[in-house]
Design a protein around this nucleic acid. Structure first.
Lengths: 242, 242, 242, 242
DNA sequence: CATGAATGAGCCTTCATTCAT
DNA sequence: TATGAATGAAGGCTCATTCAT
C-alpha cells in the first residue's frame, strides 16, 4: 500500500511539475511557444509520458487556468471575510486582486490566454465546467459584498444597475490596468510613473463617486489594504495555498 | 519619372491590399489562421511577391496595428476639438473610443494582438518606433485635454498625480471593459446585462469622483455623446478615413 | 500439480479471451484499429499481461488466423463425410465454404489479413508451421474427394492436371467471389444482382465442364446444399465449435 | 515558353516519379509501410515537396490505383477488338488479365489495396469518381462481348443470369487465382505445380460448361492467347502506355 | 505473474521562408 | 520584379514494446 501510494504521489507530483514548467513558457512566450516537445525535454521525460498525464496540449493550458482561477477564488474568499464593513471588504477584494496579479503575475496571463476561443473549444467539457464555476463563484463573492453594502445602507446603486454591473466597473478598471501594465513595459516613459498606485487611486475615487460609506481618505484606504494584505497572506500561507 | 511614380503608387496600393485582406482573417480567426499562403492566394499574387512587400509575417501584423492606431489617433484628434469645455471634450474622447471599438471592432483586436511579445520582437525597429509614436500621440491628446481642464479650473488633480496617470484611469476602465466584453460572451449570464452602458456609467461616476466641472447628469452626458458621435463620424467620412 | 494445471487452464482461457475480443475489432476496423492498449483495457488486464501471452501483436493475428483455419478444416471434415457420392461431397465442401464465409464472415477476413507479408514475417516460426499445416490439411481433404471421384470413375481429370490443381479452380472461384463481394458493396449497381447465386452457378457449371458424375440439375444441387448445410451445422453445434 | 513548359514537364515527371517509387513499397510491404518520410527520402526531395504534389498519403495510393485501372481498361479495349468471334474476344480478355497481372504484377496488388475502406474514404471525390468510372468501363467492355456472343447465337445464358453475372464468374476465377498465387508462394508445395496454367484450364472448362461456341481445344485456346498477347503488347508499346 | 508508467521512434501534416528562373 | 517549387524544422500525436516494482 505504501509503495503504491508513493508511486501514485509521484505521478500526481509530475502533473504538478508539468504545470510548473509550462506556466512560465506560456506566460512569457505565449501559447504557440509552448510545445509538447519542449515541455517534455524540459521535464526530462519522454513525450509519451506527457501524454499519459494530459491528453492534449489544450488540457494543460486549461489546467493552468483552473489553478489560477482557484487561487483567485481562494484569495477572494479570504478577502471577503476580513472585515465587517462592506467598503473595507471591497477594498480587501481589491487587495486580493493585487496579490493575485502582483505576486502571482503569471496566473493573470494564463487566465487571459484561456479567453482564446481555440483553446477553450478543445479543452474537455469537465474542465470547461470547472472554469465557468470558478468565474461564477468569484463574481458571486464580490456581488455578495455589494448586496450586503446595499442592505446595510452603506451603498445606494443607481436605478437600473445590478450589483454585478456595479462590480463590472471595478473589474474592468483593475483588469484593464493590469493588462496595460503587463503589455506596455514603457508606461513610465509616457508619464505614468506609478500605474499601480494610479489604479488604486482610481478605484478609490470610483467608490467615492458612488458614495460608498464610510468615506475614507486615500491614505486610510492604503493602510487598510496593507493590513488586509498581510492578513490574507498569513491565512493563505497557513493553508499552503500559495 | 511618371512611370516610376505610377509604379510606386501601384506598389503602395498592393501593400494596402495585403492589409485589407489580412485584417479580417487576423481578427476573425487569429494570428495562426493568417498564413502567407492563404494571403497570397487571396491576393492573387505569388508568395514571393508578398515577401517583396513585407519581410515577414510579423511585419504585416505590425502594419495593421499601425493602421489601427492611426485611425484611433485621428478619431481622438477630431474628438478633442469638438467642444470648448474640457469635460465635454473628454466625453468626446470616450465617444471616440466607442466608435473605435464598436464600429471598427477589428482594429481593437489587432491592437491587442500586437501586445504579444513574439510578434513585437520580430517586427522591424522602424515600425516599433512608429507604434510607440502613435501611442504617445494618442496619450498626448487626451493628457492635453486634462491639462486644459486644470488650467481652466475645471479639474483639480490630486497631489502627486500626473495628467497621464489621471488619463490612465479612463484608459484602463474602457480598455478593460472592451477586453472583457470581447472575451466573455456570457456576461449577461452572470448579471451584467448591458456592459457597454455600465462602462459609460462608471466613467461618468469616475469623472464625478474627481469633481470634473461642469457637473452633468448621466442623461446629459449620454446626449452629448450621441451628438458628438455624429459630428466625429461626419468629419471622418468627409475625409475618407473610415 | 492440480494447482498448476488449474493455472494453466486459466492461462489458456485468457488466451482464448484475448482472441475473442480481438477478432471483431480486427474484422470490423482492420489491423491498425487493433491496438494493444485497446485490447488490454477491453480485457480488463494490464498491457504487460497481454505480452505474457503473446510476444507481439502479429502473433495475436496469427493465432486468430489459425482459429479460423481450424474452423474451416473442421467444416471441411464434416462436409467430406456427409455423403457417399463424390460429386455430392464436393458440393458439401462448397457448402462448407459458404457457411465459413457467410455465417462466420469474420473468419474469412482474418484469413485474408494474414496474407500481408509484414504480419506473416513477424509471427513465430511455430505458428507459421501451424498455418501451413492447416492449409495443407484443408487442401488434402478436398483433394481426397477428387481422388476418390477419380478412383470410382465419377471424374476424369485432364492429362497433366493434379487433383490439387483441379481443386484450385474451385478454390479460386469461391475465394475470388467472396473477396469481390466483400470489397465491392456496389456489385448490384453494375448488374451483378445476386453474386452468391452466381458463384454457385459458376461452380456448378465448372463441375459440368469437367463432366463430374452424376450430372445433376442446378436445382438439385441447390437442394443438396441446403440439406447438407443443415447437417453440417447440426454436427458443429453439437461439438460446440461455432 | 519553352522554359516554362520544361519546368512544368519536370514537375509532371516528378509526380510520376513519386508513383514509381511508391508502387513497389506499397505492393511489397503494404499500406502502412508506405510512409511520406520514406518516400521523400527515397525521392531525394523534401517532404514538403511531396505535399506540393499530393495533398495526402491516400491520394498517392488512389493515383496508383487509377494508373492501374486505366492500364487494365486499355488492355481490355485492345483485347476486345482483336478478333471477330466472341469466344476469341473473351479469350483475349483473359489474356489481357494475364498481361495485367503477370507483367505488371504490382498493378494488381494496388488495386486490391484500394478496396480498403479507410483509403477509399480519404481520397478525393474526384479520384473516387475516376475509379468508379474505370471499373464500370472495364466491366462494360467484357459484358459487351458477352452480349455480342448472345446476339450472334454463340452463347446462351441460363435463365435469370445477366451478362454481368456471367462475367462475374470469370472475374472471380481469375481474380481469386491471382490473389492466391500472390499471397501463397508455396502453392507448388501443396501440389499446385502450375497455378497459372490451371487457372486458364479452368476458364476454358467454364466456357465449355456454358457451351460458348465455337468449341475449341485447350491447345487451340492456348495458341490463340499466345497470338493475342503479342498483338496486344505490340499495340500497347506502340502507344507508350506500358 | 501482473502491472502500467515510461519510452521514443515514427507518423502525417503545416508553413514561413528562400531562391533559381 | 514576379513567380511558385522546394525546403525542412517543427508541430501534435500514436502506440508497440519494455521493465522496475
Amino acid at each position: 500500500m505504501q509503495l503504491l501510494s508513493r508511486k501514485q504521489r509521484e505521478i500526481q507530483q509530475r502533473e504538478q511539475q508539468v504545470l510548473t514548467l509550462a506556466r512560465p513558457i506560456l506566460v512569457a512566450e505565449g501559447y504557440q511557444a509552448l510545445s509538447m516537445d519542449r515541455l517534455a525535454s524540459k521535464m526530462e521525460y519522454a513525450k509519451g509520458t506527457l501524454y499519459n498525464h494530459f491528453p492534449n496540449k489544450e488540457e494543460i493550458v486549461a489546467a493552468l487556468a483552473i489553478e489560477s482561477l482557484e487561487l483567485r477564488r481562494t484569495l477572494f474568499e479570504r478577502a471577503s471575510t476580513t472585515s465587517a464593513r462592506s467598503r473595507e471588504r471591497m477594498i480587501a477584494i481589491g487587495c486580493a486582486c493585487d496579490l493575485y496579479a502582483i505576486e502571482c503575475e503569471q496566473h493573470f496571463a494564463v487566465e487571459q490566454m484561456l479567453r482564446n476561443s481555440v483553446i477553450w473549444e478543445k479543452s474537455s467539457e469537465k474542465r470547461q465546467e470547472l472554469i465557468r464555476k470558478c468565474e461564477y463563484r468569484a463574481m458571486a463573492i464580490v456581488a455578495g459584498i455589494v448586496r450586503d453594502a446595499i442592505a446595510s445602507g452603506d451603498l445606494v446603486l443607481p436605478a437600473e444597475m445590478t450589483a454585478e454591473e456595479f462590480v463590472f466597473g471595478f473589474w474592468a478598471l483593475t483588469y484593464g490596468s493590469r493588462a496595460l501594465i503587463n503589455s506596455s513595459p514603457s508606461l513610465p516613459d509616457i508619464g505614468i510613473n506609478d500605474p499601480v498606485r494610479s489604479m488604486r487611486y482610481h478605484c478609490w475615487t470610483l467608490m467615492n463617486g458612488y458614495h460608498w460609506k464610510p468615506l475614507m481618505s486615500f491614505e486610510e484606504t492604503e493602510q487598510t489594504m496593507q493590513a488586509v494584505a498581510e492578513r490574507i497572506l498569513a491565512n493563505v500561507q497557513q493553508s499552503n495555498e500559495l
